[in-house]
């Protein structure tokens, strides 16, 4: 077995961290290790947490982590922040709220930029989930920021997806429009001490009623005040219930298949794209094709055929 893989399976934090970096950088070294660890994954319950900026996701994650730690469970947290499309850099600041776990060996936090994937989840998230799972984490939480592709993507990875809303913000309406509302397994109305909570609850519940008419499980709507730790135990209960529901209804296998499907598609896409765009033999070709398209000597479809024709024979 790959050296780094065996150390990851032992839960060595330095190796876990290093393998994540290798995976993030699409390093060939990562592939061998990822192959080795797959057999040892699948036990962690993956929770996706999404919601608008300022909805208190990080604080909620802290509260959940504190509760899980009380139960003796090990927790991995993946905090994703947007990469600047201009510089390619990113400010990864979610950790600030989680520093209370900085010396707890049972908690592993990793911050990631969305990198190349415009607005979506960085493709390495699949790898990171597998790595943390293989390293023995019982719970893996994936936190994403903002409203967009990343939020819709999170459902593919997560066993349980939590959408966090706050009272009084017009953003919740925006989330509904963006289709994000449909992805939730649990809704949380956080900061429930704020005014307007009744209205937000009513809005969400009416949506749930419409969406769940023909389903055997009605999506629960919870309220929390994460800065006062209120509603957190209830939320953990709901997560457990959802997990049991998944297992009982065989939805669990369906969900996991979805995740592996997405992961497989992603790996193929990534390797194919790398093959085409990173290989120097195609570089000049692509440049000249773009020139031709610009000069109306060629249309983009024919140009694509020229490239793909060489691969898809």
């Amino acid at each position: 077995m790959n050296d780094i893989a065996s150390r990851v399976l032992k839960g060595d934090p330095q190796s876990v961290a290093r393998l994540i970096t290798l995976a993030e950088n699409n390093s060939p070294e990562a592939i061998g290790a990822m192959k080795d660890i797959h057999l040892h994954t699948g036990d962690a319950h993956v929770i996706g947490i999404t919601g608008v900026m300022g909805s208190g996701k990080s604080t909620l994650i802290c509260e959940l982590t504190r509760e899980y730690r009380k139960q003796g469970l090990e927790v991995g947290i993946i905090a994703i922040d947007p990469t600047s499309p201009f510089s390619g850099g990113a400010l990864l600041g979610d950790r600030i709220r989680m520093m209370e776990f900085a010396t707890d060996n049972g908690v592993f936090i990793r911050s990631m930029g969305t990198r190349g994937m415009l607005g979506g989840l960085t493709t390495a998230v699949y790898d990171v989930v597998e790595i943390l799972d293989a390293a023995g984490m019982d719970i893996v939480m994936v936190e994403t920021v903002g409203v967009g592709q990343a939020e819709v993507d999170v459902i593919k990875i997560a066993d349980t997806t939590i959408v966090v809303l706050v009272p009084g913000l017009g953003d919740s309406i925006q989330m509904i429009k963006a289709g994000v509302m449909e992805i939730a397994d649990i809704y949380v109305v956080n900061k429930a001490d704020r005014s307007g909570v009744e209205q937000t609850l009513a809005e969400v519940e009416s949506l749930v009623d419409i969406a769940c008419t023909n389903r055997d499980r009605k999506t629960p709507v919870l309220t929390t005040i994460s800065k006062e730790s209120k509603g957190v135990v209830e939320l953990i209960d709901e997560i457990d219930k959802h997990k049991k529901y998944l297992k009982k209804s065989k939805m669990f296998e369906v969900q996991r298949r979805k995740r592996y499907e997405a992961e497989l598609v992603e790996i193929i896409r990534k390797r194919l794209m790398n093959f085409i765009f990173d290989e120097s033999k195609f570089k000049g070709k692509i440049e000249s094709l773009i020139d031709q398209i610009s000069n109306k000597e060629l249309d983009p479809y024919t140009a694509a055929d020229e490239i793909l024709g060489k691969i898809l024979r």
């Binding site: 990080s58 400010l91 600041g93 979610d94 600030i96 709220r97």
Partner: peptide, 11 residues
């Protein structure tokens, strides 16, 4: 009695 303040994460 009062708890401790934690700053919001702002750059």
């Amino acid at each position: 009695v009062f708890g401790e303040y934690k700053e919001p994460a702002i750059y």
